[in-house]
């Protein structure tokens, strides 16, 4: 398959089952809501080293937010419900509770609940106030700028993590430009995040390493500086590869994001130096979900 001169490789992305939750952070203005969201989703690129993968899903206008203030919606993905709960509490405790003017709400309904303000309330040292409003329990924690309002729990749901595609280009700048365009298009989609810096990964990895302590290491087959030394998957015209990793609430969300992203890259296509689109997988043996690129783009 070739779109605008760019080859869509006959391969698939391999993704895994994860646990996900959505929270809503509101603040006095969009700037502070975003600061809180960005802070709590910082250092959340990969579960390997960060515990969870997280990102801002969308901005929420005042009329659609729980307390009538502007906000952001944040998605967090963990390898298990327990891990997700642990890191969620850590992050909201250190990054949202501390952030001026913020309030915190569940952005997801479901039977499986995980703590949001349930334990954060103890920061109130006995002066916290519980409020039952419209079937949900909230905590009002006195803080120095007023009151921190926080819903007691949020829900977690099964999700899909690790959807991906690779952009193979003639130069580093061309790969970056194409990926930026893809991310710009994908950011408008609900239920997905691209957790890596700016949504883009330049250090795609393979499972394992020659060093026993490492569970992942550089994917040498796609490193242009190792061409000629290892069994490379890059032809001589390709000098840079970048990857976009996608986590989504559902399989269809990841599939749609993959399609939208690749479509945006292919709009630049061969004239902009984009030679090929590939994907990362483990031979289909590890992941529950497979996204065949040519089926996605059909």
């Amino acid at each position: 398959m070739i779109i605008n001169g760019t080859e869509i490789e006959e391969t698939f992305a391999e993704a895994f089952g994860m646990a996900a939750t959505r929270i809503i952070i509101t603040a006095i203005n969009p700037r502070w809501a975003r600061i809180a969201g960005e802070t709590m989703t910082g250092f959340a690129t990969s579960v390997i080293g960060c515990g969870v993968e997280a990102g801002i899903e969308s901005e929420i206008p005042p009329e659609a937010s729980p307390d009538g203030r502007p906000g952001v919606s944040v998605l967090l993905f963990g390898m298990s419900g327990k891990a997700l709960a642990k890191h969620l509490e850590n992050r909201v405790g250190q990054c949202v509770l501390t952030c001026p003017t913020t309030a915190l709400f569940s952005g997801m309904s479901g039977e499986k609940r995980i703590p949001l303000g349930k334990n954060l309330r103890f920061f109130g040292d006995g002066y916290q106030i519980a409020k039952q409003i419209a079937g949900s329990r909230y905590w009002r924690v006195p803080v120095m700028d007023g009151e921190f309002l926080c819903e007691e729990t949020t829900a977690r749901v099964p999700a899909v993590g690790g959807g991906n595609f690779l952009v193979l280009a003639e130069t580093q700048l061309q790969a970056l430009t194409a990926c930026e365009k893809a991310i710009e298009a994908m950011l408008h989609l609900p239920n997905v995040i691209m957790p890596f810096p700016g949504g883009i990964v330049r250090s795609g990895s393979k499972v394992g390493s020659k060093y026993k302590a490492l569970m992942a290491s550089t994917n040498e087959a796609y490193c242009p500086t190792l061409r000629g030394l290892v069994k490379s998957k890059l032809d001589p015209t390709i000098m840079s590869v970048m990857e976009i990793v996608i986590n989504g609430i559902g399989e269809d969300d990841v599939r749609l994001a993959t399609r939208v992203g690749i479509q945006a890259v292919c709009e630049l296509g061969a004239p902009a130096g984009i030679r090929r689109i590939s994907a990362g997988n483990y031979g289909g043996k590890l992941g529950q979900f497979k996204f065949h690129l040519r089926e996605v783009m059909a």
């Binding site: 729980p66 009538g68 309030a103 409003i133 419209a134 909230y138 009002r140 007023g146």
Partner: peptide
């Protein structure tokens, strides 16, 4: 005098 955020939720409910 205070601005109490929870009142928005309460009155909206």
């Amino acid at each position: 005098k205070h601005n109490l955020n929870f009142l928005t939720l309460l009155t909206r409910s």
